[in-house]
Design a protein around this nucleic acid. Sequence first.
DNA 1: TCATAATAGTTATATTCTATAATTATATTC
DNA 2: GAATATAATTATAGAATATAACTATTATGA
Lengths: 160, 160
Amino acid sequence: MVEPVKKPTRKTDGFVANDTTLRTFVGYHMKRAFNVVQADLAKTLKPFELRMLTYTALVLIVDNPGLSQSQLADAMDVERPNLVVIVDELEQRELIVRQRVPTDRRAYALRVTLKGQHLFQQATDAVTAHEKALLGDIDTGAQDTMIATLIHIQSGGAKG
Amino acid sequence: MVEPVKKPTRKTDGFVANDTTLRTFVGYHMKRAFNVVQADLAKTLKPFELRMLTYTALVLIVDNPGLSQSQLADAMDVERPNLVVIVDELEQRELIVRQRVPTDRRAYALRVTLKGQHLFQQATDAVTAHEKALLGDIDTGAQDTMIATLIHIQSGGAKG
DNA sequence: TCATAATAGTTATATTCTATAATTATATTC
DNA sequence: GAATATAATTATAGAATATAACTATTATGA
């Protein structure tokens, strides 16, 4: 049974802007593609009341039990002050705990709670399924090539 | 003459977080790679007092003389209210003008000024050079594959 | 040892980007 | 001509991002 397609697409008539200059930039394509992925991710995480940043922090705490906020901030490429609110949110929702480190009383060891572990698993299943739905029809070889290229860029490309 | 390398790398010692779960997501790699590209772009545009959004708007106005703000917002995937401040900024710097459209007095036709055209050319040369420096060592085939894949994702991937 | 510097976390603050509702002026449609 | 839609705008709020400054604690080195 085919749903009759609604037309909420007001937008600007049939006009399509000429973006030939921008298309010469790889970054332009990266941004536009990432917008789509990010929007899909946000929608996927919404039922769990997670955003990309809070989900990423939760995952990294699961995979790195006991790491400090500084280490987490470093892993997420986020400034320490900005990480505080993210950790606050996860802690208030009782998804993680801040444990004092006996050997260094300045630092906290971050650990996931049982509740956090469960939410992590549910959210990760959902994100995995949604990514597969979004990108599943892309040729495996092309996907591998893209990931390798993206990793290369991460390390600074020709500069790194 | 080799500069002695400074060590401003405080960061978290030698610790490297385990991100195996996140690495299963293509979006994770896209975000991290785009962070690098975006940071490079911001630095490149800084001397021209342009940001990614103001530069993008300027380029699209150059390539689409006379387009309306709604059309520009649509092309940039930005909400109309948010575009106003971008156009305001470009107009105040006399890089573009808002021209009333005789046939539709609600709309403005956006056009670049001579000053804007010059800044566009300088900035575009700089951005082109910086992208080449950043991504120049990537295999051409891999680059083409990535761009094709990114374009495919833009149109909604398996969903579109 | 003690003074100094460095680190972990936090608070405060500012900028930018993004998103929605509501308003005015003009155009379109029935 | 009345109702509706569109273009641009204002107002507002939520997020992400970045820097400076502060407290508490740890590390360094004269």
